[in-house]
Structure formats: C-alpha cells, structure tokens
C-alpha cells in the first residue's frame, strides 16, 4: 500500500510553494495516503489491455496562431489594478535575490 509520509507532504508542499503548519502536515499525511490508496487501483484497468496510448486531451491538439496584427491590449493601469503593490508602471514585489 502506498504511503505519503509527513516528511513527504512537507517536501511536496515546499515544491508547491505552500507553507503548511504542523497541524496541517499531521492531518494531510493520513488523508492523502487514504486518497492515494483509493486511486492506486487505476492501473488495474490496464491489465490485459495490451498497448494503450496515453490521452492528455479529449480533442486533437494543434497549435493555433492568430493573425499578426495590432489589436487593443490591457493598459498598464488595467494590468496593475489588481496588484498587491505597484510603483509607476511596474509590479512591486518582495526581494527576489539572495541577501548578500
């Protein structure tokens, strides 16, 4: 039976950029293990099915290009209207480089 340990949940939360608290980690590990146990049966459907192509999408995908012509876009004011912080015509963000 597959298991997602508390440490693994913490690692996955780090990858997903969610800072989970101790109580959430305690709760999520057994919950996710239970869900994973239920979905791990998925490969049973493949037994005896032979070669099966993976399907990522219901319809055939092909790239779509729009005409290369000018058209209206959002103004800087519109684009910045929902920003948590902005300065001039720019998004104001926390530091993105290391401290030194």
């Amino acid at each position: 039976m597959p298991e997602i340990t508390r440490d693994e949940v913490a690692r996955l939360a780090g990858l997903a950029r969610i800072q989970l608290g101790d109580a959430e980690l305690d709760r999520l590990a057994p919950e996710l293990t239970k869900i994973l146990d239920a979905v791990a049966t998925v490969s049973q459907a493949l037994e005896g099915a032979g070669e099966v192509q993976p399907m990522s999408h219901p319809t055939p995908l092909r790239n779509v290009f729009r005409a290369d012509e000018l058209r209206p876009t959002l103004s800087p004011e519109q684009a910045l209207a929902g920003a948590p912080a902005s300065e001039g015509q720019r998004f104001l963000v926390p530091r993105i480089l290391g401290e030194e």
Partner: peptide, 10 residues
C-alpha cells in the same frame, strides 16, 4: 497510467 486509462474510457 491515468492517461492510458483515459484512452480506455474514450
């Protein structure tokens, strides 16, 4: 595996 089973469903 899930993507393969998706083909089987279709």
């Amino acid at each position: 595996s899930a993507q393969q089973v998706r083909s089987l469903v279709a």
